[in-house]
Design a protein around this nucleic acid. Structure first.
Lengths: 344, 344
DNA sequence: ATGAAAGCGCTAACAT
DNA sequence: ATGTTAGCGCTTTCAT
């Protein structure tokens, strides 16, 4: 492996000049630059990452903590990961992947100066990792919004707005009784940031619009989906007597990728037509919305976009020394075949 | 950040002693070791990864190339990735994730000494990355089996055996006409290693057992699955006349996670009972086999296991200087509700 | 069983 | 516009 000195020798310049043509941190005359570049390519020179990190305190590596927690759809995780990796490469960085959800991994790579910055996924409301993150030298950005983001940058879809948007659209379509088939119980129990925010938004909009909402967590299995559908559609007595329940929901929001196909199958089994009898809005990645038995009206989860923004934010703090900030991406609803205004 | 000298000072020893208690490369008296460990923990010392890499030519990082190619199920990819990361941590290594499928990324991290070893996923029969991989200083292991593995270690499920096993099981169950609903056309066109090997095994066993096989690639969409099912079940004339076709297949092998639910839905729509009218064997991760509308007889894709083995193999070459080798994991079939012996 | 010292390959002052 | 030089923090001979 040739070193910077080999290149310098070959180009007839000093090592620092080679370093500077590489970094662009000072101006180099055209002829010198060419000789250096020539030498670099004929020798096939690559700077040694460790030496560089040691001398410059910069690794050009971003740490990405992507815990694979149960109940979280991996394809959604992968979208975020892809966004992070892709954008990182755009700004000349690589990504070190951590999948354990303990705080130890982060400390290790941060204290060991393996990374310049850290992106953390799957954030919980009172995430236990936050105190550690705040002590790190490296800037951190969370994908998700904890209760106390103080000192940490955050970026996420505005899930609460997504919940509102879904409920409101059902209201606009003429639905009065609506249900949210939400994240798996375990995800909600963990107080995963996005899961509870959707519920809050959905409930809030329902209250404001005078809707009767039902919210049911849902295991991401065929049985779980069936049970959730039972609960959502209300199998009990209704509409008569003092303890009268509201009518069967006609509008359904599904925030659960894995359960989605089973929910649709369940509706079909009951002979309920979508969108005729029941309107369905999915909150999921666009590609899963369109690859169901019928194309679903949906609110997209722009994972790649958000992953990319996370990198931009962390780089801004790294380069510009910007203070921490939070960014919520506005949700967008795409009308497809699973909803239609109700004729009432 | 405290350095090794700070620790040495605090413990009243030399820096090399600290280094040696950390590496265990020479014996240290109990009292000295204790004073050093004490100093390390009170100072919160962590060796600087770059300095270490520079001095030792070891990064303790494994590069993982996991291209996210279209048509490949991300949840399957994630299983492999998880296996790699988990096992890497067991042997005190971290993982640098590359998702671009160009060869540039590998060269960069290898030549830049960012990684000690490389694991490459999604290997094609005549993979264009192989020549580059063979030139690297770092040992490489492929997850997949190219035509010319010479000089490179490989590990994978024995997909050909999986294809055989599925066909043979259908034969044993009394099926004569069988179909394989395979990977997406794009995956096959790319000559993705696993996709064609399954086909070969399936065809081979069918020939030996006197089965009439049909093989149809399948887009991982509802429509694609429907079309594939049309093709597989043969919509044309049959059983009479000179150009007589064979009978409608009664045994189906599905090697396509995304299409699976739609294939099952398609069968149901046609009024075909599983396993009564059609036996179905899926080649997919165990968890997707059991989360369909009925639990499927399946051949598991042990992604985590294989990812872990890949790491073990690459470490063996790194530490032991072992020569390259190939390892194929024997497939296992788990009987569930989607197959049953034919009464016929 | 421990220390001293020479690098590992690069960057970034400090020169000119 | 370019060269000189002093580290960055560690590992690992070579000594004792």
């Amino acid at each position: 492996m040739p070193t910077i000195d080999d290149v310098a020798k070959a180009a007839g310049v000093s090592a620092s000049t080679v370093s500077y043509v590489l970094s662009g941190k000072r101006s180099i005359s055209a002829p010198t630059r060419r000789r250096v570049e020539q030498a670099i390519s004929t020798l096939g020179y690559r700077p040694h990452a460790g030496a560089r990190a040691l001398a410059s305190s910069r690794t050009n590596v971003i740490g990405l903590m992507a815990p694979l927690r149960s109940g979280v759809d991996v394809s959604v995780i992968m979208q975020f990961v892809t966004g992070v990796v892709t954008r990182a490469r755009d700004v000349d960085h690589d990504v070190l992947l951590l999948t354990q959800d303990d705080t130890g991994g982060i400390e290790r790579v941060a204290a060991g100066s393996m990374v310049d910055a850290i992106v953390v996924m799957d954030v919980e409301a009172d995430d236990t990792r936050l105190p550690v993150l705040r002590t790190l030298r490296q800037p951190t950005v969370l994908i998700g919004l904890p209760h106390e983001p103080a000192g940490l940058s955050c970026v996420d879809l505005d899930w609460e707005a997504a919940g509102r948007l879904a409920a409101r659209r059902l209201a606009d379509d003429g639905h009065r009784d609506v249900a949210l088939i939400g994240s798996p119980p375990e995800v909600l129990d963990r107080r995963t940031s996005y899961a509870e925010r959707v519920v809050r938004g959905f409930r809030g909009a329902a209250a404001e619009d005078g809707l009767t909402p039902v919210v049911v967590p849902c295991e991401p299995t065929p049985d779980g989906a069936r049970r959730a559908l039972d609960a959502a559609l209300g199998e009990g007595p209704r509409g008569d007597g003092p303890g009268a329940r509201s009518d069967r929901p006609t509008g359904l929001v599904v925030h659960n990728e894995r359960a989605l196909p089973h929910v649709l199958a369940g509706l079909a089994e009951r002979g309920l037509d979508v969108p005729g009898d029941v309107g369905v809005i999915a909150i999921c990645p666009g590609d899963v919305a369109v690859s169901q038995r019928l194309p679903l009206t949906s609110i997209d989860i722009p994972g790649e976009l958000i992953g990319g923004v996370a990198v931009d934010m962390v780089m801004a703090r790294l380069e510009g020394g910007q203070p921490a900030e939070s960014r919520l991406i506005a949700p967008e609803l795409t009308q497809r075949a699973s909803t239609t205004p109700r004729v009432a």
